[in-house]
């Protein structure tokens, strides 16, 4: 890894307690600018909780989060998205009843700020069509522009979700199990897509499966029982006896 990188997203002492149960305990995490960072761990390790804390869909009990040098601990989820830190969801998050093009336009509308105009015609939104089409085509959905999102296959919904996210021109993406429930062909396609969009961006992804992140991520943090177990590149992490014990020993390859 290159020397002189700066932290894009940093969490320190991040803790979340649910009525006495500590889901995430004192986690320190630093995601360097321009890298793909993976957060992995067995079921119940606190990955998703951690992820929801970082994106402010949950409020941490203790700890601070800084993004691009700015303390974002007290901001709302929507405000964080406005700063350029955009998350995806485990179950593909598209707007089913809208077309592919409209899905992407929703993201662009937020950026341009005409989203409160209830007295104007939606014909106005056609001004976004060319640019939106560009994002749709960049994820290989050019042929589905006017299909309802509900009609797409699971892998294509994932691609649409990424196109919508890209339309926000985010600096950093947080992907929650982007490969969950996908066929192998789709996994390869989405892996290549993630690799491509990481150009000039920072990515933090939660994954269940070590092998998926092996050739994708620059750095891996392993969580178990709410705590950081190991951190480093794939070789370091996969050889760590604690990780083998807690994670691979638990029945995963």
């Amino acid at each position: 890894m290159a020397i002189g990188m700066s932290a894009m997203l940093q969490a320190s002492g991040l803790t979340k307690e649910f009525k006495g149960f500590v889901a995430v305990n004192n986690v320190d995490l630093t995601v360097e600018r321009g890298t793909i960072h993976a957060l992995i761990g067995p079921n119940g390790a606190g990955k998703t909780t951690c992820f929801n804390l970082l994106t402010k869909f949950l409020q941490p009990t203790r700890g601070t989060i800084t993004y691009d040098g700015r303390d974002i601990t007290s901001l709302s989820a929507a405000d964080i998205a406005r700063l350029g830190l955009v998350r995806s969801f485990q179950i593909s998050a598209v707007f089913d009843d809208l077309t592919v093009l409209e899905n992407v336009r929703i993201a662009m509308q937020r950026r341009r700020g005409d989203s409160y105009d209830f007295w104007r015609s939606e014909v106005l939104l056609a001004q976004y069509d060319d640019e939106a089409r560009g994002y749709v085509e960049s994820v290989g959905l050019g042929d589905f522009l006017n299909h309802r999102a509900a009609e797409l296959s699971y892998g294509r919904k994932r691609a649409l979700e990424i196109a919508t996210t890209l339309a926000l021109e985010p600096d950093m993406l947080l992907l929650d199990e982007p490969m969950a429930g996908m066929a192998q062909a789709d996994v390869d396609r989405i892996s290549a897509l993630i690799k491509r969009i990481s150009e000039g961006r920072t990515i933090l992804m939660v994954e269940h499966n070590l092998s998926v992140v092996a050739n994708l991520s620059d750095r891996i943090t392993v969580l178990a029982r709410g705590e950081v177990l190991a951190e480093g590149d794939y070789d370091t992490v996969s050889k760590s006896p604690e990780v083998i014990d807690a994670y691979i020993g638990a029945g995963h390859d």
């Binding site: 336009r105 509308q109 105009d117 209830f118 007295w119």
Partner: peptide, 14 residues
């Protein structure tokens, strides 16, 4: 059927 209406639908959907 306005820009606002589009956002509204998206909120209803997800």
């Amino acid at each position: 059927h306005s820009p606002f209406g589009q956002v509204l639908k998206s909120i209803r959907e997800n």
